[in-house]
Amino acid sequence: MQTTDTGLLFQSSQQLADASTRERKIVAAEKVGNPIKVTSKVLDLVVRGQDAWTAESGWQARRLDLNILYKGHKGPVTSVRLHQVGGQRPWLALITSSWDKTIRIWDADSGQLVHTLEAHSDFVKSTTVLPTVPPMLLSTSSDKSFRLWDLSPLTEKGIPVSRQVVKEHTRPVDSAAYALCEEEPSIMLVWTADSMGVLKEWKISHLPTGTYPLTFVRDLPGHETSIAGLARTDDGLWSTRLHGTTPVILQHPSYVKSILPNPNGLPYIVTGSEDEDIRVWDAATLDGDHNQPVAIVSGHCGEVSALVTWIKDAGGKKEVIIVSAGLDATLRRWSIDDLLNPVPLNYEPVKPNSGATMTEEEERELAELMSDED
């Protein structure tokens, strides 16, 4: 009798052991981090007040608690952003981007689709709302470009206008960040990063009236591989490296997928990695490239794709919570104490059976598959 599970054919003992270990880890992590389960991989996350919005691989964005789904994209949703629209009738806009090459703007409260922007000729990788006057949206794409969109028409629910297209990167543009220039408050600095680790700095001059065009300033020391995300703090610009007077490198055993510097002003750096762990670093002791995390937190069973701060309000009592999102289709909620004093997952990894041999039935199945006979 032949097996109907084709996934078991030609798998090594190591692969079978890894699959069994993963099953045990999923069971052990079932309640770790107070998880919220969704239906597809979480690629991006925004928390505002007591609600969370997710960008998911299942072609949708989601509002948790109220459980509103924003359906319409025809590919994985890569980013979610919130923008408070002013005017005589203020409303909250949810801005999403997708592999379907579009940006979509929704009424965040009703879930109604307001506009679809035919944005780029390839995947839209990220969106960033710049607090200029008028407000601008910066979208980055796998088509090696990024765009500036004027969001001011949204006050009357009109269509945002593309104001500038920049094609200075030679690889897909993955992420962006911004900050006001400390020396000249009339200047906004913007950074864009691509899949080859190239990091470029731009500026917008004469704020608040001159919101475009962006002008190139310089290339910054980059990385050997893709820069998955950028975050700006008072200390500098974080990717995996802090670009300031002294570079600070946080070494990880695998790709860094998310970073949260100084959550709510606390002296920690929180990072999420492809190896499925969250790491906590003491920001006050960072020095060069010889840094070690103060805690390594296991719980996710997929890479940690996003980290955000949530100020939990429980009957007037406020608490800082770190919300992590993962490709295991969960959000997990951690207090600072949870992260600094992690509870080990209680499961035993499965060792491969190095001496395993095929049964007579397995040998027969293999012979049939390798046969040239019809």
Rank of each mutant, 00 (worst) to 15 (best):
T39V: 12
D44S: 11
R48N: 12
N67T: 00
A52H: 02
S79A: 11
R63C: 02
A52F: 13
Y70R: 00
Q88E: 13
Q84D: 14
A52S: 11
T54G: 06
G58F: 08
W53K: 03
L64F: 00
L45I: 13
T78Q: 05
T54I: 10
L64I: 01
L66D: 06
D51T: 14
T39D: 08
Y70H: 02
G72R: 03
R89T: 15
T39I: 12
R48Y: 14
S57W: 11
V46E: 03
W59V: 07
L45N: 03
G86K: 13
R81E: 12
A61T: 12
L82Y: 02
S79N: 09
I68N: 00
Q84N: 14
G72D: 05
Q84A: 14
G86M: 12
E56F: 10
Q50I: 01
G75S: 05
R63E: 02
D51W: 09
R63D: 00
L66W: 06
V77T: 03
G87R: 07
I68Q: 00
A61K: 08
T78H: 09
W59S: 06
S57K: 04
S40A: 12
G49K: 04
E56M: 11
V38W: 07
Y70S: 01
G72E: 04
V38L: 09
K71E: 08
R89E: 15
A52E: 02
Q84W: 15
S57T: 08
W53E: 06
G86E: 14
P90D: 14
D44A: 12
N67H: 02
N67L: 00
G49S: 04
A55K: 04
G86A: 13
H83Q: 07
D65I: 08
V47M: 07
E56D: 06
R89F: 15
V80L: 03
D44M: 05
Y70Q: 00
W53L: 10
R81F: 08
V42L: 06
V85G: 10
S40D: 13
V80N: 01
I68A: 00
E56Y: 07
G49E: 05
R81C: 12
G72A: 10
A55R: 07
T78G: 04
D44P: 07
W53H: 05
S40P: 11
V42F: 11
H83C: 10
L69P: 03
L64N: 00
K71G: 05
R63K: 12
Q50A: 12
R81T: 10
G49T: 11
D51S: 10
Q50H: 09
W53N: 01
W53F: 14
T78R: 06
V42C: 03
V38P: 02
D65S: 09
V38K: 02
T54F: 04
G72K: 03
V42P: 07
R89G: 15
L66V: 12
K71I: 14
R48I: 15
L82M: 11
G58T: 05
Q60L: 12
N67D: 00
V47K: 02
S40M: 09
K41G: 05
K71F: 08
L82S: 03
H73E: 06
Q60P: 01
V85Y: 14
R81K: 09
V46P: 02
V80G: 01
V47S: 04
Q84L: 14
H73V: 15
S57N: 04
R89Y: 15
R63Y: 01
G75W: 09
L43H: 10
P90G: 15
R81M: 10
D51H: 10
E56H: 05
P90V: 15
G58V: 07
D65W: 03
D65H: 11
L66M: 07
